Amino acid sequence: MSGAEVLEWIGALPFAVAIRRSATLYLFANAAHILSIGIIVGAILPLDLRLLGFFGKVPVAVVGPYLSRAAAVGVALAIITGFCLFSVRPVEYAGNPAFLTKITLLSLGIVNAALLHMTPQWRAAVKGGPLSMRVRLSALLSMVIWTGAVLAGRWIGFLLE
């Protein structure tokens, strides 16, 4: 199956057709996507700021695991709701530079978080240990990546028709 055929297949999925035909369903899918992005940003930015040394009285051991899990839930919800929105106009989105930038940044953000969580420096930090340069650099990179993903997401609509 070619890429174009896959995109056409996605656009023909029953839920894609239903969302395309119903302004109300589209509204709910869009609102759910925005709320999931709020969960991501609301979890990741405070965690990244703490890892960079702000809010020093807040223990990383307390907020690190909680905010990481909250961000992961937000990412999962954003992917699900984003796919629903993508399915409405898959051919147009697949050719949209802002969408492609957003997907790339989303992937980089997930990889950055996964790599950080596999390091001994992260495990030490969430046990109350010091915040290593590796942890701090990952937090700074995370802030840049996720902010960029949000900006790219807003840019998508300006490049469609």
Rank of each mutant, 00 (worst) to 15 (best):
L67T: 08
A113P: 02
L159Y: 06
R136T: 06
V73L: 14
R123V: 09
P46A: 07
R154D: 00
L85Y: 08
V60T: 15
L13V: 02
F55T: 03
V111Q: 02
A12V: 01
V62Y: 15
S142L: 10
V63L: 14
K102V: 01
G157N: 01
A70M: 14
S87L: 05
A18C: 02
M1G: 08
A139S: 10
V73M: 09
K57P: 00
L141K: 11
V144F: 08
I37L: 15
A152I: 00
G109V: 03
I103F: 01
A114W: 14
R136Q: 14
L115T: 09
L105M: 01
A29Q: 04
A125Y: 13
I110S: 07
V126D: 06
I103P: 00
Y66V: 13
V111M: 07
S107G: 13
G157V: 00
L13P: 00
R136C: 09
M1A: 11
G53I: 09
F54V: 06
A113L: 10
S36I: 08
A18K: 03
T24Q: 05
I80G: 13
S138E: 04
L141R: 14
P65C: 11
I34W: 11
P130C: 01
P46I: 11
A114N: 04
I79R: 05
F99N: 00
V60Q: 07
L49G: 04
S36C: 11
S22I: 04
L106S: 01
V6Q: 09
V17A: 10
L67K: 09
E5T: 10
A12P: 00
I37G: 12
V58S: 10
K102P: 02
L52K: 12
G148F: 02
A72T: 12
I37N: 10
L141T: 14
A113M: 11
I79W: 06
I110R: 06
G82D: 03
M133C: 01
A32E: 02
P14A: 11
A114M: 10
N112R: 09
L131E: 08
